[in-house]
Write a protein that binds this DNA or RNA. Structure first.
Lengths: 199, 199, 199, 199
DNA sequence: GATGAATGAGAATTCATTCAT
DNA sequence: CATGAATGAATTCTCATTCAT
């Protein structure tokens, strides 16, 4: 009888290890052996679960996106009114900079590794789809807000894009200079601007 | 001092070559030999001008920042009124996505390569300083606008940070999905929001 | 002793699987896992029957030699007259190129893997002994032919060696260029030459 | 001014080193590092001259074929009469077993590495072409012999194939059991048989 | 006995960097 | 000053083999 393993659990353990290592040292400076050591397994074992270092990054990206989705679902659970959803979303987003800092470092690696437009790249496609999906979600919130009489907005998609880009840009700035601005103040300012824009 | 001029010119040629190559293939997938070939010089010659591949990226980053600065100076030349400056700045910024696309790809490499907070990194410091400097400039515009009675704004720095983060975030999104939004529409929307926020 | 029979059967199945896989991809390009899959057993099970990949090749070589011996025994069954034995042997040998093609590919791997003269190698010893044994058999046929007045031959061993080397060389050439010669024509030519040489 | 190197000479040195190493340990047991050490260069340098280990073997094969050709050209220089050419050729061939022993070991590696019929392989093609070319040469000799009234032969190509296969088979047997037969006796026997066959 | 998950020694290959010319 | 041949440290990935179940 062969050894029985919870493959899904081990996969997650490797991904967590990869996140820790990549976040600390950066993707290219990290060795597969270090990831393996962090996951307390042999380096060959990673290749039982992932095809290559690049594909590990891609899987990690997918894993982080799912985690973020869970995080937002949790933070926004039970909220009904679109303006309140938006408010809480922005608060959660900026709070995540601190809480999920490693995520954002890995995102930088993903951006660099995703390749260029002319290159076919699964990572790139995954990145694009994640943006699209996040925008779709936000569009729905704005549209609901418009329908409910809370918001006025001609171009919900443009607005959603704008808000999310802003969050991503702030994440990037904050990552490279946490002193640059105060997260709470920015949350408030950002919320006020968004509300005024959707007024 | 003709020799000095020559040196400076060759340095620029190498940087331009590096930009082309890095933008097309990404920093880590690019070889020094490819940069040399693009600059039509020998591989070893790069090392007469730059210490290492990493330092070449850092120098390239500085070079690109200077180029961008020139670009904005040119675009905003002669404009006096703060609201018009802001308007033109945003238009120039979004127009640059297309015009300076290679820049943005290299910026992704810089973000990934800049290292982590705990690591000392000249590249990281340069990145942070560039943000600071850009924000300072924008803060001056906003303050001038406030002084001139064009704008109302309690926290110019926060507002400036907000606007620049938004531009960077849009650049990133646009890079990975140029179909996601229309640059002209976004310029308009962005300008309107900014104006309303500073109203 | 049903268990013993079972073991023997499974061993043969593994060897047949190994032959198929090695013949198709070559020894070094074949993985133990592929052999196991072809034998429809688990990877670890092979090691219940063979010590190592190298030893599996050696066992396979032995297995193939035995198969070939059976084949010749069958082809020559009941033939009594030495010239006819020789004739039939040559026909069977060249016919085997097509019929046993996988064997010959594996033989190439054996030659490469058998090691060098200075190295002790069981595979090498087995290879040498197989040649010796084949030659011994052919010498007996020639001697019987001489004794029976069919052949004239001063140095039967030299003649046997010559004939067998010729067969092996032809196998090799045929393997790498099946178009090079027609097997039937070559059989006839070979037979004629041998007969004339032993005339 | 860059370092000037005789690339062709260095290439040959690497090939000679590869031949020594491969012949002693076998292709797969030899490391690139060992070849480099034998050539007294760094292992990276090999890759300046050859694409891969496999391609090094292929180049070595080509190199050895050329060397053999030179050897035969030298041995047969000035000989005019076809029977004498054939006689000398066979003597040279069997003498080469001892003199060029490393060659034959490497040939075994080539046979194993050349791949299977269904696979596209440059090595395989090179192997096949080498056989064809050798046979062509021998066919010319036989045809000249027939034209000159020295030989009788209906199927020169078949005869040539036969003779060369015999030489290759003997090389193989001799490699794995140098005691199996005496080279001089075999030369004489082989020559006699060939002459009788062409009589 | 059978299995296949885990392992880690091992090797090919890459490429930034050096330095003789 | 410029060059590109040479280098070897570094790292990914492979796969024969082991062994817990």
């Amino acid at each position: 009888m062969p050894i029985v393993v919870d493959k899904e659990r081990k996969r997650s353990e490797i991904l967590e290890a990869a996140m820790t290592v990549f976040a600390r040292k950066g993707f290219h400076r990290s060795k597969m052996e270090e990831v393996a050591a962090a996951a307390k397994i042999g380096k060959g074992t990673i290749y039982e679960y992932f095809d290559s270092k690049h594909q590990l990054l891609q899987a990690l990206h997918g894993y982080m996106l799912a985690k973020l989705k869970e995080y937002y679902a949790e933070e926004l659970k039970g909220i009904e009114e679109p303006p309140e959803i938006l408010r809480r979303f922005l608060a959660a987003a900026l709070a995540s900079f601190r809480q999920w800092e490693p995520f954002f470092y890995v995102f930088c690696d993903v951006w660099a590794e995703a390749g260029r437009a002319e290159q076919q790249s699964l990572l790139r496609a995954q990145l694009r789809d994640a943006y699209k999906s996040a925008i779709d979600d936000l569009v729905l919130v704005i549209e609901a807000g418009v329908a409910g009489g809370f918001f006025h907005c001609d171009r919900p998609r443009l607005e959603a894009e704008h808000i999310l880009a802003c969050v991503d840009g702030l994440a990037l700035h904050w990552l490279y200079d946490p002193q640059a601005f105060d997260l709470d103040e920015m949350t408030e300012s950002l919320t006020r601007t968004a509300m005024r824009s959707l007024g």
